[in-house]
C-alpha cells in the first residue's frame, strides 16, 4: 500500500514538475501515492500548508521563508525545502498609455537597455507629483514573491524608490489584464502567459523581462511542513527522487507537447495547450538547479530586507536560510 503524500499547487505552468510526478508514474515508482490539490490563491495555499491540510506545496521561494519566520499572516509554521522547482519567466508590462508617455519623455532611454528603462519614469513621476496626480500603481502576484522584488529592483535601477514613489499592490494574475484595461493599474510584474495576453489584446507593452533583471533567479520551491518531513524521512526522500525524475522528463523537448496538454487540463492550469507550450520555457530548471542552494535563500532574505518585510541580523539571516533550505536532504535522497 503506497504512502499518501498531499501537495498543494498554484495553477501556473511551473506546477509542471509535481503534476508530472503524480500523473506520469514517477511518484508511484518511488512507492508514494502523490495527491496534488489546486489552490486558487497564494493565501489559500499558505493556509493549507500552515493548518496541515497538505504535507507540502509548490510555493513561492520567499513565501517559504516568510512562513517559517512567522510573518506570512498565519502562525509561524516550520517548513523545509528539499528541492527547487522553477526559475520563473516573469516580465514587467505597462499600460499602453504609460508606455507612450515613457517613449515621449525619454526616447533614448526607451531605445536603450531594458534593465534601465525605469529611468523613463522619473520625469513622469515628477510631473505627476507637481500636477497633484495620484501615484502610478503597479501590482505583482503576492507580497512575498520574486515578482515583487524584481519590480522593486527594476525601479531602483532606474532611480525610482518603489516603496515611496509608486503604489505597489497585489492582484491575482488572471485579473491583471482586466485591471490594466480598466485603468485601475499602470503596470504589473507577473509570469507568463499574462504579459503576452496583455500584448496580444493591445492594452500593454512589455518593458523588461526577468532575464534582464535577475537572470537565473530562483522562484518556486517545494516546501514541506518540517514536522511532517521529520516524521516521514523515507517519504521525503522518495518525493525528492520522484520530483527530480519528473523534472528530467519535463525537460525533454520530446515531451513538451504532452506536458502542455496535461497542464491544459481544467484541474491543473486550465488554459489552452498552445499558450502553455509557448510559455514552458523557464518553467523547468536546469538539472543543476533542482538542488536547493542556500545562497538563493540568503539573497532572497536580503531582498525581503530591502523591501522592508523582514529585519534580521546577518547571523539570523544565515540561520533562517540554513533552517529552511536543505540541500542535505536532497543529497541524501539522491545518494550524493
Amino acid at each position: 500500500m503506497a504512502e499518501i503524500v498531499k501537495l498543494g499547487f498554484a495553477p501556473l505552468v511551473d506546477c509542471a514538475i509535481p503534476v508530472v510526478a503524480a500523473e506520469k508514474g514517477f511518484a508511484a515508482a518511488q512507492g508514494i501515492d502523490l495527491v496534488v490539490e489546486r489552490a486558487p490563491s497564494w493565501a489559500a495555499l499558505r493556509d493549507k500548508l500552515a493548518f496541515g491540510l497538505v504535507d507540502g506545496a509548490h510555493i513561492l521561494a520567499p513565501l517559504a521563508l516568510a512562513l517559517h519566520h512567522g510573518i506570512a499572516g498565519v502562525p509561524a509554521t516550520p517548513v523545509l525545502v528539499p528541492v527547487s522547482l522553477g526559475l520563473g519567466n516573469n516580465a514587467i508590462t505597462v499600460s499602453l498609455d504609460l508606455y507612450e508617455r515613457m517613449v515621449a519623455v525619454a526616447p533614448d532611454v526607451m531605445a536603450g537597455p531594458a534593465a534601465l528603462r525605469a529611468r523613463a519614469l522619473r520625469p513622469i513621476i515628477d510631473a505627476d507629483r507637481a500636477a497633484g496626480k495620484p501615484l502610478l500603481s503597479f501590482v505583482t502576484v503576492f507580497h512575498f514573491s520574486c515578482h515583487h522584488y524584481e519590480l522593486l529592483k527594476w525601479l531602483a535601477d532606474g532611480g525610482i524608490d518603489g516603496g515611496r514613489e509608486v503604489n505597489i499592490g497585489v492582484i491575482t494574475p488572471p485579473r491583471m489584464v482586466e485591471s490594466l484595461t480598466a485603468g485601475w493599474i499602470d503596470g504589473f510584474c507577473t509570469g507568463e502567459p499574462w504579459n503576452q495576453r496583455a500584448v496580444q489584446r493591445g492594452v500593454g507593452k512589455v518593458v523588461v523581462t526577468k532575464a534582464d533583471i535577475r537572470p537565473d533567479g530562483l522562484e518556486k520551491v517545494l516546501g514541506l511542513r518540517t514536522d511532517w518531513a521529520e516524521e516521514h524521512p523515507a517519504r521525503v526522500a522518495a518525493l525528492v527522487r520522484a520530483i527530480v525524475n519528473a523534472a528530467e522528463w519535463s525537460r525533454d523537448p520530446g515531451n513538451r507537447a504532452e506536458l502542455a496538454r496535461l497542464l491544459a487540463e481544467a484541474q491543473y492550469v486550465g488554459l489552452s495547450a498552445d499558450l502553455i507550450e509557448l510559455t514552458l520555457r523557464g518553467a523547468i530548471p536546469a538539472p543543476n538547479r533542482n538542488r536547493p542552494d542556500v545562497a538563493d535563500a540568503y539573497r532572497l532574505l536580503l531582498e525581503m530586507t530591502a523591501a522592508g518585510q523582514i529585519d534580521l541580523s546577518a547571523d539570523d539571516r544565515t540561520a533562517l536560510a540554513e533552517a529552511v533550505w536543505r540541500p542535505d536532504l536532497y543529497d541524501e535522497a539522491m545518494g550524493i
Binding site: 490563491s41 497585489v170 492582484i171 488572471p174
Partner: peptide, 8 residues
C-alpha cells in the same frame, strides 16, 4: 483569488 490582494 482576491485574498492575495487583501493580504498585500
Amino acid at each position: 483569488p482576491d485574498r492575495d490582494t487583501l493580504e498585500q
